[in-house]
Every structure is written in C-alpha cells, then in structure tokens.
Design a protein around this nucleic acid. Structure first.
Lengths: 169, 169
DNA sequence: CGTCTATATGTTATATCATAACAATGCAAG
DNA sequence: CTTGCATTGTTATGATATAACATATAGACG
C-alpha cells in the first residue's frame, strides 16, 4: 500500500511521532515545486511562503492566522491574499482544508492519488493524514445502496493522538 | 441491519425517493418527544418549532435561515436563539450539523445508536443519512495503525442523488 | 400557595470566517 | 513592445458563531 510510506519522511505517517521535521518540510516543498512545474503553474512568493508556513508543523492554521504572518512579512494584509493562496494550494493538491476547524494544513501525500482522512488531536492539535481508501469504499457501498454517486468526501476524526492519550486530563 | 429500515417511514432510507413526507416528519417529531421525555428534558416551543422546521424537508438549513423563520413567528430574533435550539437538538441526537454546509439537518435515525454519514446532493441539496458503521470501522483501523483514538468522526459526501443524475447539466 | 432554584429565553455586542468586485501590477507569447 | 492573462492588492461586505449578561418561567419543595 502506498500509504505505508510517508513520501516526505520515508517512514510511516508520522505526524504523531517525534521526527526530524526539517527534511520533512523541505522535501514537501521540493515536491510541491516539482508538481507545479510539471503542470506549468507558478509557485509565486505568497504561495510558496504560505506553503512553508503550513509546513512548519503537522497542524492546521486558520486563514486569518496565516494572513497575520504574511502581512508581517510584507505581503498583502487583506483576507483574499490568504484565501487565494490557500485555495490555490488546495486546488492543486498541496494543502487540505480541515472543515472541522475551519483551517488548512499542508498535504502530506503530495502527488499521490489519495483519499485522505484526517486525524485531529483535540489536545495538542496535531493533525495526521490517514489512508482513507477502505473507509471511502465502504462509504461508496453505502451510497450506492441509495443510488447516490459520490464526487468528493470529507472524512475527519477528532480524538487523541498517542502522546496525548498518555497524559490524562 | 437496523439501517435497512427508516424508523420514521418504515421503508429504506428514502430522503432521495419520492415519499409521503407528512408522516415521515410527524413520526420523527413524536419520536423526539418520547426520547426527551424519557431523559426528563423539555421540548420547549422554540426547540419544537426548530425541529419542525428542520423536518420540513430532507435538507440542511443554516442557522440564520432558521432564525429568520423563528423571528417571523414571534421568537427571539438574535443568533443565540437559533444556535441554542440547534445545539440542544444536536446534543440529544435529534439533529446533525453538516459541516460542509455550515448548516443543520434533522436526524433520520433518532434514538438509534448510529454512526451517520451524510450524502449531500450538490444539485437539489437533498441530504440523506447513510449507515456509516463499515466506513467508521475502516477509519478506526487506519487510526489504530497510528495509535490514534477516535472520539467522534465526521463523514460527509458530496455528489449527485439518483434523481439529479438523470438530469445532466 | 408562595418562594427558591435551575433552566431557558432574550438581548447587546463582538468575534471569526469568507467572498464579491474592482484596481494595479507584472510576466510571457506573439 | 504591446497585448492578454494571471496574479496580487485593495475596499467593502456578507455569513457564521459565541461571549456575557438580563429577564422570565417551570418545577421542586416547604
């Protein structure tokens, strides 16, 4: 299964595991550049910086938090600046919207065809992408039973990551 | 499987099928009354009216749309009036929040333990609840592989209902 | 029957998230 | 070099949601 390997870190999905994050982020950025180059699309300064900021951690960032960062660095200070960069990244598979949080997170499987499910830790707010193909096909089955055709699905789970389970409230 | 039967309509889940909706809504309301009575909770006028409005159709309604309706009928005209009623209904399993739409819909399986997935038709905006237990257990498996414990999951699919598939754009 | 208490309703005010519409800039093909 | 289109920026507004506090009412209980 392609999802056993994290393409960025050459290890299993490890948002929840301690890991050397610098190469994790750097590789994702390089991968993004390659993907966009191939499609003839431009990773402009705002877009690149947006992606870098999202890649700072395995968490989700709200559009206005991002905007604050961008504005502080000399980019435009109005909401569309942030939303446009985020929409662009999402549209090309470099970032995902986390609907539960009204926020965005960098994609950890750029360039792979994947149905992602998101695991959101309610304690430390870390987010991991989990392989959702099995869940998705179960969902397709349920939808077919009603004659419904799924075009896109949102699968998000809230709970506790391994580290936070060990530290009870 | 409990989900083969729609408890309200005594038929398979039929949000997408033509059906006599009056008893569908009336039964759901009666069921809600029973559930709340058993828990010693009150279906006050705003709450009851909110549920009735949600039950008018198999679709989702935004909090402000609901608020407009409530205000026109003499209830309070401020957002908390709508949000409180909706939160109450959701908390007790009588309604669901559809995150994709920032809106709410009446629960079609009140009182049953169920993991619901929502099928949202992007053309006619009808919403159906589908049995999500298989998808949920696939998701649990994926989460376990990362040591993550799921507490609540959101599963929503966007696509075309049977009727709208037959009428191409 | 009163009165106390918890629940519920209502209000004002504000926070948070998102997009429409238009102006200005800049890159890139011809 | 200029025309066209993508990109960035702005102003303005719309849409969703909650905090904090005031008032009212149902039910429990003496």
């Amino acid at each position: 299964m392609p999802h056993d390997q994290c393409p960025n870190c050459a290890a299993p999905d490890l948002a929840f595991a301690a890991h050397d994050h610098a190469p994790c982020a750097a590789d994702a950025l390089a991968r993004a550049e390659a993907i966009l180059a191939e499609k003839g699309l431009r990773l402009t300064p705002v877009r690149r910086r947006t992606l870098e900021i999202l890649l700072e951690g395995h968490r989700a960032l709200g559009a206005y938090d991002l905007l604050t960062r961008l504005a502080a660095e000399g980019f435009g200070a109005q909401p569309p600046v942030a939303y446009r960069a985020l929409d662009f990244l999402e549209e090309h598979g470099l970032a995902h919207r986390i609907r539960r949080l009204n926020a965005f997170t960098a994609c950890m499987h750029m360039g792979e065809a994947h149905f992602a499910a998101f695991l959101i830790c309610r304690a430390c707010h870390a987010i991991s992408e989990a392989p959702a193909a099995p869940a998705r096909s179960a969902l397709d089955t349920a939808a077919n039973a009603q004659g419904f055709t799924i075009e896109t699905a949102t699968i998000e789970a809230l709970g506790l990551c391994p580290a936070c389970q060990e530290v009870p409230a």
